[in-house]
Computed example of a mutant assay.
Amino acid sequence: MRKILVAVLVGLGVFGLVAAGLFRFYAPSRAEKTPLDLDVIQVATGPAKLLNASTGQLEDLAFKATRRVRTDSAASDSKVTVVQETLCIVKDIDNPPECLDAQDPQHRLVSFTTDRVAADRRTAQSVNDPKYHTNIDGDATATHTGLTYKWPFHAKKTSYKFFDPISRQAPDARFIGTEKLKGMTMYKYEAVIDKMDLPVGPDIPGSYADTRTVWVEPTTGAIVKGVEHQQRWLADGTQALDTTLTFDQDAIDFQAKQASDGRSQIRMLTVILPLVLLLVGLAALVGAVALYRRDGGDGHRASAGQPPVAVGQPR
């Protein structure tokens, strides 16, 4: 019976050690991937100064920007996720809906843009391959560079290229420090686009500048909070837009929960479970060795005060 128990303990120990290794080195390839079922709505709000074309004066307004990010699961695969993003910015007047069209009698629509991007599910880096049909506002010649809607898993305290679909540039998002948010330590990055030539509208020359600040949960790479300061000028230097938009509290709470859940899952699969399996495996092997030695090495307990009889030896 004890021989059977020793064998069981050895088997359990080997299983624990092997399983610990598998979870430690194989689980990250499964757990640390962008999911293929995203359907996220993020709302950002803030003050704005917008040029009134009729009066030639800047108006003080409030903007509401609604970004929806959905995974195109049919186009995505095991290595690449394809997401379709829409961004609708409206004047926050009379509790507007998520988006409006140009026929709105109060003329509250400011802009509506789309962005279809493919990204590596682990590194979050943009992937440019015609089979994913990426585009910006329908322009299939647009090329994405760097990060788009999230950071890589286990983000570093370094700079990352952060793509801006308006300018179609990817300035460096510099690491500028850490900050506590919703009980988690965030990495804070800032990407600046200095004033550059860019049309204000169709056939309206002008210039553009933008500063984006994001708070990233480093384990998952999720952007939990974002602030964007955007400015535009006409060709003669007249300011056409100056706005600062910040994730609203619902968006921050949602992103924080996603980050917290993802971080817990990654920690469970890559740290806690392997450690538990390792300890169980080692304990089982130690128990097997102890039981084997206590039984004299052959599975039969020696009598007290009498040395064990050697097999094959005459008495």
Rank of each mutant, 00 (worst) to 15 (best):
P28A: 08
R315S: 14
R116F: 11
I193T: 09
F112Q: 12
S126C: 11
D242Y: 01
K161F: 04
V69R: 09
S73Q: 15
A155S: 13
L17C: 06
A20F: 05
T219I: 14
D77C: 05
L58R: 07
Q125E: 15
E217Y: 08
T134K: 03
V43A: 05
R301F: 15
H133Q: 14
A222H: 05
S260P: 01
A304K: 14
A27Y: 10
W151P: 01
R267G: 05
T123M: 00
I176W: 08
H300P: 04
P205Y: 09
T243G: 10
A170C: 06
V289C: 08
L277N: 01
V271Q: 13
A191P: 02
K182A: 15
D197H: 02
L12W: 04
R168H: 10
F162W: 13
A288Y: 00
T55P: 10
Q258C: 03
G299S: 08
L273V: 12
H154N: 14
L278V: 06
H133M: 06
M1G: 11
L38H: 11
G201Q: 06
P152S: 10
M196L: 13
I4Y: 10
T220Y: 13
R293I: 10
P202H: 03
G11H: 04
L278H: 04
F23D: 00
K156T: 05
G183H: 10
E179D: 12
Q84K: 14
R67C: 02
G138C: 01
T145C: 05
V192G: 07
K64G: 04
D137Y: 02
R293G: 06
A209G: 07
G56C: 03
V224G: 00
A74Q: 15
K182E: 13
N128H: 10
S111T: 15
D92I: 00
V10Y: 03
P171I: 11
V224E: 00
A44G: 11
D39E: 12
L285N: 11
Q313R: 13
T243R: 13
G201S: 13
I266C: 01
Q230C: 03
L58E: 03
K3H: 04
I193Q: 11
I41R: 14
P171Y: 07
V18Y: 00
L181F: 04
A259Q: 01
A288L: 00
L61H: 06
F153A: 00
A75Q: 13
I252S: 03
K79A: 13
A19T: 05
A75Y: 07
A75T: 13
G221A: 05
G21V: 00
A20T: 11
R168W: 04
G56D: 05
D115V: 09
A48P: 00
K188A: 11
A124P: 00
L291T: 14
D242P: 02
A283G: 15
A302I: 06
V289S: 11
D72N: 15
T113K: 15
G226D: 13
I89F: 02
G146I: 08
T81V: 15
R68I: 12
T148D: 08
T246L: 09
Y149W: 14
